[in-house]
Amino acid sequence: MAEQLSQKQNFLKGIIKDNPVFVMLLGMCPTLGVTSTAYNGLGMGIATMFVLLMSNIVVSLVKSQIPGKVRIPAFIIVIASFVTIVEMVLEAFIPFLYEQLGIFIPLIVVNCLILGRAEAFASKNNLISSIVDALGMGIGFTIALTVLGASREILGSGSLFDFKMVPEDASTLILFILPPGAFIALAYLSVVFNKVSTKIN
């Protein structure tokens, strides 16, 4: 199936047609949990994309060596190793983001998106397609998180990437930076996304 797709389609499917957040509903926990600001959403998206890319590369290289019955635990080990690397790098170099993302960094390991791509794509396709797939999915995920983070930040605190857009004492819709706001913002964003993607198709 994947062989028939050109690399361009393979790349683009992760962004629109099979967008991990809006269409496939994968990786919802970090999507809702860390997107109170655009910066956090972007950081989480990039961290996830790195792990996804590395795990897709490794899985597609060693796929023939892994016995079918133990493939899921094997994939998880690969993913967990890269998550540990990300965790250490963030703690050392971007401690602010490390604090903000908190528990959701170790939890990248259980992001269904990464295991899902390892199982559904990288274990069946060659290296190049797997890299392209990971980049497409990773960028689709990052865009979704950044857009959600940006809309919540604008509505909830009247700023974007920490840049204030309203006067200091203006009243903003605090609801959107609180937990319920995550669900509500994502609900409306997916309505918009569905509308736009039907138009494009």
Binding site: L178, P180, G181, A182, F183, A187, S190, N194
Partner: peptide, 20 residues
């Protein structure tokens, strides 16, 4: 447009609001 995922998320949001 609200059928499926969006309405479920919206319901979850209202539930979360109640728990707030």
């Amino acid at each position: 447009g609200m059928k499926g995922v969006p309405i479920n998320l919206l319901v979850a949001g209202l539930l979360s609001l109640a728990f707030l």
